[in-house]
């Protein structure tokens, strides 16, 4: 029975966890592996934590969800609390230790049940500007939280996991790159933690997903690839 790598990502609406889960699963599929991605979806509400489940294997994949993750990545203080049940003794636990706090999701996304609709960036001037307009041709939208705050309470970090890695992706995105590539740093981190796919496969996947944007603005490509490499190296050195 081929090993199945189980990855759970959790974050605030607007952090782009579903986007990177999708890119990851698609890249694995392109690589000829079996991949299964399922978002948790429901009635969007204030303070909702968005969780993405991705499984990658050379063989068949069983149930779409799982209890214990091999890689668990909660990206906000609230997500840390919400995903405790997925942490087990074999889990590599990567969390964002930037000193930020989650903003409230804007009221006007309440009631949405379409998981591909990324809730608007909570800190944007116009909340709806970030909303995906076309459900099929939509690009992934993401942002980091720039609101300063206490960050993750260390007491919430589960014990008895295989490894805990703190990754200040939010701060790096904000200070070194751009808030919008926050989730791409995380994507790089996942690749480093799992080595499930070569980094180039992800770059190809990004190229497919964002090719038009890259063409219009080549700087965007550099920034995304830089973010990917940054996340990868950060975790590689910690593993």
């Amino acid at each position: 029975m081929a090993k199945v790598i189980k990855i759970a990502l959790a974050g605030e609406g607007g952090q782009g966890v579903q986007s990177i889960a999708e890119i990851l699963a698609e890249a694995a599929n392109e690589e000829g592996k079996n991949a299964l991605y399922i978002p948790n979806f429901g009635v969007e509400q204030r303070g909702g934590v968005s969780i993405a489940y991705v499984q990658i294997s050379d063989g068949a994949i069983g149930a779409p969800k799982f209890v214990k993750a091999d890689i668990l990545i909660p990206l906000s203080p609230r997500a840390v609390k919400r995903t405790k049940m997925h942490a087990g003794k074999d889990t590599v636990y990567i969390y964002d230790n930037s000193l930020v706090q989650e903003a409230e999701v804007n009221d006007n996304v309440v009631g949405m049940q379409y998981f591909d609709v990324t809730p608007p960036c909570p800190t944007a001037d116009e909340a709806n500007r970030d909303m995906q307009q076309d459900m099929i041709a939509g690009e992934p939208k993401t942002c980091s939280f720039t609101k300063p705050g206490p960050g993750v309470d260390p007491a919430d970090i589960p014990e008895n996991v295989k490894k805990v890695i703190a990754c200040p992706a939010n701060d790096i995105a904000k200070n070194e790159l751009h808030p919008r590539v926050f989730n791409i740093i995380i994507l790089g981190a996942i690749i480093a933690a799992t080595e499930v796919l070569p980094l180039d496969t992800i770059k190809n996947a990004l190229e497919i997903k964002l090719g038009d944007k890259f063409k219009a603005n080549p700087q965007l490509r550099d920034m995304n690839f830089k973010a990917l490499d940054r996340g990868y190296e950060l975790i590689k050195s910690a593993m």
Binding site: E22, L36, I38, P39, I61, P64, F115
Partner: peptide, 10 residues
């Protein structure tokens, strides 16, 4: 079911 509706696989 909802899982089959929303999940992606090849």
């Amino acid at each position: 079911d909802g899982y089959q509706a929303k999940m992606r696989e090849p």
